[in-house]
Design a protein around this nucleic acid. Structure first.
Lengths: 343, 343
DNA sequence: CGGAGGAATGTAAACGGTTACATTCCTCCG
DNA sequence: CGGAGGAATGTAACCGTTTACATTCCTCCG
């Protein structure tokens, strides 16, 4: 007697009294099939509870209909601290998924916690997909080199080393920081500005810091050694707690919103009035910034469009593997609320 | 001359001077291979930029090392409104990804916007994975039936119809709402309670509404027709704007945090003092609740563990397809902050 | 009425790995 | 010194689809 293994095209074909080719044609959307046959096959599939084998389909068609995303897991697996920093990633994922869905693609995600494991994870994702997106620090040149054969897009990647080699999408970090910092300087007349930087290996964070230094220096203001955080509220708090209350700067520019929120929360707990005693601003434009007290002045970056653009580039390259590498810069927008001193 | 198609085990084998079997063994982690051979093969893979074909591997090994997740897309694709309601999903995804990562699995995600398309999407995800998780309303009985052959877990699913058929994980909605509502009644002495319900097709939302009705009725208090929202801040606002200020209830219990935040924001804009004039509480325990004014009293549900548990159940069923269906209930915890009237 | 032409369907060879089984080649011991 | 035994490697069938090509069977027109 037959084992109860899951049914294949052959089983469906037998039950419907047709060949496997016909079943296959019914699967891929009824090319030249008589309506009667089509219906008979679909009925057989239904009856058998047939599920096509994606691996087999992928093998012959050379298309998995999957795009992969590899991103850093900023969270601490033990404590849940740091999960807030993943909001950005979540939005990029959402943008990718929405863009991919309409075109019949699903999104495969994998996060890297240990930088050592980046290549391994990226390869494992790459081997199951038609193209891969590498987010931020998960795109070292070594990985990019190794995966060259596959359509690949780097989102929020390193500065320019790879720009000529691989498709990239990033936001206009410099423009955003410039608008933000100029606002603090020009509108509010702040002179002593401090920067709370992101992790050293974050490309976005690096660009923001560089832009900040440029502006401040160009304005003839002192550039102080930046504080360091890891994009989480938690480090924002820690850093704020270590500040000397008596010698606060005029403003603290944070490399992202979550750290700004941590700073604001911790400073207020210490009795510091914001923005009166010190202005605090962020970068990203996540929803929670609107609810903080005071509401957070920030730079909104288009996170979902980042993911959507990545999908488009992937498709473009799939269609034309030899296309010139693209290097997209999406615009940012200053979002003035109250934490900078505006009302 | 050879075309520049991507290299296969055969190419690697030729270059390393071994057979394809040896290459395969090198791939799957060096079973009985002499160190010299292993190194030679790895070198060849490196040189050729070899990427194993996941589809081919999946076909023979009958394992894709992928778990899929199908969830509802609550957001409005046009306006970005409603994306906030996806915070819950994001956390479940994160829980799944983290749990799956360690066991060598990646997560394939697909969202359904149009309920009609649920089955089609679920099947497409199912066919590419070793098991699938259906979230909330994406698990109608018809879909469950059709995918029966595959390991499947329903997270936050319908009440009990399917409990005996399929593995499930959900949180203790009734317990959470009970604790929350009792707190309002017993501690704050509220008598007029209003419920802001979620979308009618949300199983979680349904359970929360039912539990609320039970408690209120049991306490001998009036049960008013619930307000209706769709889990987004936006509808929270809308609903709050339509309330008559003169006849506000003592408290509004919202089926999730985002709606509660919308309600609070909109009411405060209308000059209503919270919690003095009316208490507002939520459900979920998302991070932003801590920053709202006043900080949101809520019921924390373990979102990441939900995803992690789903992965465990998937693995369990993969190991033993005949296992008895499990129906897990994860505990919730009342998180008292200020929006209920506590200090 | 015969055959051209086209629509519907069937046949069978890939696709790129894995793995059961076969083979080779040592090592080591009686 | 012969052969047992085991480690390393090779051979080839198979996994479940897709698809190029072959076949069948109409329809329709000269």
């Amino acid at each position: 007697m037959e084992v109860d293994r899951s049914p294949t095209v052959h089983d469906v074909a037998r039950r419907a009294g047709v060949s496997t080719a016909t079943v296959s044609r019914a699967l891929s959307g009824g090319a030249k099939l008589s309506p009667a046959t089509l219906e008979r096959v679909q009925r057989a599939m239904q009856d058998l509870g047939y599920l096509p084998n994606g691996a087999a389909r992928g093998l012959t068609s050379r298309r998995t209909r999957v795009f992969a995303l590899c991103f850093p897991d900023l969270g601490d697996p033990e404590t849940d601290a740091g999960d807030d920093a993943m909001l950005y990633t979540d939005e990029v994922v959402r943008g990718m998924e929405r863009a991919a869905r309409g075109r019949g693609y699903a999104i495969l995600i994998g996060a890297v916690q240990d930088p050592e494991a980046t290549l391994e994870l990226a390869m494992s994702l790459a081997s199951r997909s038609d193209g891969i997106v590498l987010l931020g620090q998960t795109a070292p040149t070594s990985v990019i080199q190794r995966l060259k054969r596959l359509p690949m897009v780097v989102v929020a990647g390193r500065r320019d080393d790879d720009a000529s080699t691989v498709d990239q999408v990033r936001v206009d970090n410099a423009g955003g920081i410039t608008a933000l910092t100029r606002h603090l300087i020009d509108v509010h007349g702040h002179r002593e500005l401090l920067f709370l930087a992101g992790p050293a290996d974050s490309p976005d964070g690096g660009e923001r810091l560089d832009a900040f230094r440029t502006i401040v220096t160009a304005a003839g203001l002192p550039f102080h050694n930046p504080l360091r955080g890891d994009f989480t509220q938690h480090t924002g708090r820690i850093v704020a707690q270590s500040l000397h209350i008596e010698e606060l700067p005029d403003a603290i520019v944070c490399a992202n919103d979550q750290m700004a929120i941590g700073v604001i929360t911790a400073l207020r707990e210490r009795g510091v009035r914001i923005p009166r005693d010190v202005a605090v601003v962020g970068f990203d434009g996540i929803g929670v910034g609107r609810h903080v007290q005071p509401p957070l002045t920030t730079v909104r970056q288009p996170m979902q469009p980042l993911g959507a653009a990545a999908v488009s580039l992937l498709e473009r390259r799939l269609a034309n593997p030899a296309a010139e590498p693209e290097d997209l810069r999406l615009p940012t927008r200053l979002e003035v609320r109250a934490s900078c001193g505006c009302t």
